[in-house]
Design a protein around this nucleic acid. Structure first.
Length: 284
DNA sequence: ATGGCCGCGCGTCGCGGA
């Protein structure tokens, strides 16, 4: 294949959603659009309880960083997409980094690894489950801003150390009013506050590109819909799950889409996956 | 219509999510 697909999906409990995940991976493969690299968020279980075996049976290798009940992130990669030298669990994920160096945190929210796929220059993939923040003025909001500040500093060093960087995950930030179904109703809330949005645009100033906005999409393209109030049916959602790439990858960017299919299934996650298609390149 | 959903845990409600 001359293309590589990266995706992000907040599964809202991997234990509950493993069947959906496997089904989605199989379905996308059948459609000749296999997911090669996937970042997961909100595992809601400890690392040792992660369903490594189910994913391996489906042809995927995984690393996970979990905790009981809350948070938790994972990276998975399609074994067939890896190079001959990296096709085993020891070498599929290189330079693995748990959480943000220098930012001690009980909450498991960030996982970085370097991945070597066939006919593709190595990718530094950073998978994040950004704090929700509850509401401006709360302790959780202060924690969110502190986390974002630490992340920004980490991204600076990552961009210096790695040629090709992908930052994907549940950012819990809707960057602009067009990313919110009813901007007036959201004024004063988390996800849309000027402080949170400022970080998103600082990432842009650092050269990180919001890939969905590289392409045209219908108005009201969202990635999360409230379980309540028939949010999905009314398309009352927000766009908070993102895939950002650095400028070295911009020329390889072929498509970015939200896949709403799994959100229509029985007992779905409240988030839909986002998929980025890259044209493969070995050029420096 | 100002509230409606979902997942988790030692739980029969409260918390967190967004």
């Amino acid at each position: 294949m001359h293309q590589l697909r990266l995706a992000t999906w907040n599964v809202n409990s991997i234990k509950v959603r493993i069947t959906h995940l496997i089904q989605w991976l199989e379905q996308t493969a059948q459609e000749k659009k296999p997911i090669d690299i996937l970042g997961l968020q909100e595992l809601k279980l400890t690392t040792e309880k992660f369903p490594y075996q189910e994913l391996e049976n489906a042809g995927y290798l995984a690393i996970a960083l979990g905790q009981k009940t809350y948070n938790g992130v994972a990276l998975i990669v399609r074994r067939a997409a890896l190079t001959a030298l990296t096709q085993d669990p020891e070498t599929a994920f290189l330079q693995v980094q748990n959480n943000i160096p220098g930012f001690p945190d009980e909450q498991q929210r960030l996982l970085s690894a370097t991945i070597h796929c066939q006919n593709m220059a190595p990718l530094r993939v950073i998978c994040g489950y950004f704090p929700n923040g509850q509401a401006p003025g709360t302790d959780k909001f202060s924690y969110k801003l502190a986390w974002l500040k630490a992340l920004k500093s980490y991204l600076h060093t990552q961009l210096e150390q790695h040629q090709r960087v992908v930052l994907l995950g549940d950012f819990n930030i809707a960057p602009r009013d067009e990313d919110v179904h009813d901007p007036a109703a959201w004024i004063g809330q988390n996800l849309v506050s000027p402080e949170e949005r400022a970080y998103f645009f600082e990432f842009a100033e650092m050269g990180l590109i919001d890939t969905l906005r590289q392409f045209s999409h219908p108005p009201k393209t969202f990635t999360w819909w409230d379980y309540r109030m028939m949010g999905f049916r009314r398309n009352a959602g927000v766009r908070i799950d993102h895939i950002l790439i650095n400028q070295a990858l911009q020329g390889s960017c072929a498509a970015c889409e939200v896949d709403k299919t799994p959100r229509t299934w029985e007992q779905p996650s409240d988030h839909a996956p986002v998929i980025l298609t890259l044209n493969k390149t070995l050029a420096p």
